[in-house]
Design a protein around this nucleic acid. Sequence first.
RNA 1: GGCCCCAUAGGCUAAUGGUAGACCAUCUCGCUUACACCGAGCAGACCCAAGUUCGAUUCUUGGUGGGGCCACCA
Length: 792
Amino acid sequence: MKKLSEIKNWNVELEEEITSNWKSSDQFKFNPKTKKKIYSIDTPPPYVNSPIHMGHAVTYCFMDFFARYRRMKGEEVLFPLGLDRNGLPIEMAAEKKFKVSPFKVGREKFIEYCEKLLGEASVESIDSFAKLGISFSSYNQGQNIGDIYHTDSPEYRKITQWTFIDLFKKGLIYEDSRINNWDPKLRTTIADSEIDYIELDSTFNDVEWTIKETGEKVVIGTTRPELIATCGMVIYNPEDKRYKKLEGKTAISPIFNEEIPITAHPTAQIDKGTGLVMMCSAGDVSDIQFFREMNLKPRIAINQDGKMNEKAGALEGLKVKEAREKMIELLKKKNLLVNQEKISHRTPISERSKAEIEFIEMPEFYLKQLEVKKDIKKIAKKINFYPKNSKKILDNWIESVSIDWPISRRRYYATPVPLWYSEDKIALGKNGIYVEPWKTAPENDSEVLDAKTKKVIGLVKDFKDAKWVGETRVLDTWFDSSISELNMLQYHKDDGFFKKAYPASLRPQGKEIVRTWLYYTILRGYLETGKECFNDTWIHQHILDGNGRKMSKSLGNVIDPQLILKEDGAESLRFWAATEGDLSKGDFTCSKEKIKAERKSLNKLLNVSKFVMMFEKPKKKPKLTSLDKLFINYLEDLTSKTDSTYEKYDFNHPAQDLRKFLWDIFASNYVELVKNRAYNEENKFSNEESDSARYALHFLLERLLILLYPIIPQITTLIANEKGIDLLNGEWPKANVGELDLNLVEKLLNFNSQIWKTKKEQGISLRNPLKGIKIPKELSSFEKDLRVCHNI
RNA sequence: GGCCCCAUAGGCUAAUGGUAGACCAUCUCGCUUACACCGAGCAGACCCAAGUUCGAUUCUUGGUGGGGCCACCA
C-alpha cells in the first residue's frame, strides 16, 4: 500500500490496488465453525444478463455498511453474493440474441442457447461489486458457505426440488384445473403478482339480445364481444327496477343463439353501461370469481396460443383481437350493434412480455397459501421492519391474497417439477439429487405414490412394468428465489449449522418486491420450519435520476455506476450514498456533481491525517488539557450516538454528523486551536501540554477512522495501516461519555468564527495580532490556546 | 374507490410548538508552518386554507400538487 506522504489526492488508482487486493484475499471469509454470533445477510441476487445499475450499486453499498459494521462489532458475518440465472428474462434474452423460438427449436436445443448466453454473461457485475469494495464473504463461485452461488446450479435446484417433494407429499402442493392468467406470448401461466395494468383504448359495444319468453329486445354492453359464445349468465343489480321483470327469464345470445339464464346479482352496477351484464367465462378476473361463486362450468373459447377454438363458432382460428373485429362486423351486418363508444380500459398485461393476459383453464400446480394466511401474518409480526411502516406493504398484500399460488410454468430454463407419471402412480424425485424428468427416467429407489391418495406405495424398482412419463413443466422462479435464505444457511445440507444460524439476520431488499420476494420467502420459510425466516428486514426505496425521474434506457437518463467508479471512485460513491439521505425513507436523486463533491471530504480526511501524522503519538497518555478533554468528550458522545444509530440500519445521520465533525469541528477548529501547542516551536507551552495536543490529535483521528470505516473502508484502512491499526479486527470502542458540557464546543466555534470575521473586516492578516478582544467567561479555561491561536 | 409516503432557498436536503441548519451552484473577499479538490463571508426557503394555541413550518382537518401500492371497471 502507498505511503500517506506520497499521496496528494485520493484517486481511483489507489482504490484499484486496495479493492483488487480485497477481492483475492480471504479476510472477509465466513468461518462456519465460529464461536462468534452469526450475522447473515440474505442479499438479493441480481440478474446476470445485464451489468449492475445505479440502484444495485447504491443498495449493495448499504449492505456493505451493515456487513462491515457487524464485523467490527465482533460478529461472524455471512454475506454471500447470489446470481439469479433462472427464468423468463434469460429465456427472452436468448430468444432475442440468437433469434430462436423455444417452440420451434425444441427444449433441449433451447436450453443450450440459454446456457450459451449464460456462459457468455460477463463477470462485469462481479467486477463492479469488487470495485465498489463490497466485502462479500467470497468472490469465488463454489460450494463453501458464503461462496458466490448460482440459482440455476444443480446444487441450488436440488434444494428447490427437495422442498417441492416435501410439500407435495404433505399435500400442500396440489394440482388443479382452474382458469389461470395466461400469457399468450410466452405461453405460460403466470401468478397474479406478475401482472401489470395499463390503460388501453378499447371500444364499448352495445349489443342487442332477445328475451326468449317475451321476444323483448334488451341491450347489453361489452368490451369483449368475441366472448359472447362463452356467456354463462346475464345479470342485473337486484336494486335495478328496470330489469326486475327479467328475473328467471332466458336471454338468447346474438349470432350463437344460446339460451342464457338471467338473474339478479350485486356484481352488476346500475349506472354502468345498460345495467345488464353478460358474464363470460374468463373475460377478466371478476368473471372468474363469478363463475366460481355461481358454480357455473366455464366454456373456454381461447386456446393456449391465443387463438379462438371451435367453441367460438365462426371465429375459430382467429386471434383474440381479430375475432373481436370479426364479431363486431357480424353484429353490424345483422343490425345487432346498437351503439359503439371509445373508452380507455385498464387492461391486465404480463409484467415480462407485456402481452395482454387471457384467462384460460389449465391444470397447474398450486401451493396452498390461503389456509396459512393468518399464520403468515403472525409470523410477519416477529420480523423487525426497517423502516417500520414498510410492513404495511406486506400486510396489504397478505390481505389481498385470494387464491393459492400457482407455481408451475410451461417454460424451459427453470427448475423442473420433479415428478414422473405412470397410470395411477406418481414417482417422486429423490431428495438430494437434481432431476430432469423431461429427459431422464426416475431413479430406481425413488418413492412412488398413489396418484389419488398421495400415499407411498413403494419404490420405482417395485414397478418394473411401469412406463414413466416425465413431467415437462417447470417451477416459477419465485419458487426458487423464495428459499434463498434456506440455501444460504445450508438447509438440507448441514443441519447442525442450519439450526444454529436460522433465522437469517437480515433481508435487505427493494419495496417493489415485497409482495413477491419477501412475502414468498416468509411463506416458504414458515412452511419449512414453522418459524419466521428473518430477524430484520431493511426495505429500501429507489434511485432516481438528477431530475427525480426513474432511470430508464428509453429516457436516456441512466447514470452508469461503472462510469462513476472510473471517474470518481468507490469511496466518493459510498460517502455520497451514506450522506445523501435515508434510503429506507425516500428515493435518492442521483447527481454526478454531488458524488464528485464527496471527493473533497476524502481529501480532507487524507490531509488532516497527514497533519496528525507529522506528530508522534505520545507513548503514555498524558494529562489532558481541558480543551483536549472537551473535544475527546465530544467525539465519545458522537461514538455512542453513531453506534446506536448504525444498529438501526441508519447510516445517514451518523454519516452526516461524522462529516460535520471532520470538516467543521476537527479540521477547521480543533486543529487550528492546537496547532501551535502541538508544534510548540516557541516553547510557549509545557511539554505536557504539547503532548496532550498530540495525544488528542491521534485519538480523535483514530476514533474518526473507526466510525467511518463501514462507509469508506478503503481510505480509512489505508490511513489506519500507517498508524498500525487494524480496523476490521480491532475492538469496537466503548464510548466514555464524559460529564463536560458539550455546548462549549459550539461556543468555541462561534468565538473562533467571530475573531476570523473581525480580522477580515479590519483587514488584519490572520497571523497578526488583534487587540481589544475579551474571551468570554465560559471559555476562560481555554484561554491560553485561544490567545496563541488568534494572537490576541 | 381504499391505503401508504412526500411537499422547506435556484437545486438537493436537516432540525424544530418560539420563523429555520448544512450541501451543491451563484456572488464578494482572501493566501493561514495538512489541504486551492483551500479559507472567510454575502444573498436566498417552510404549498394553500381553516382549526387547536399566547404563539404553527412543526399538531389536527380539508384542499392542491407529486410518488407508490392495492382493488375494481360488463
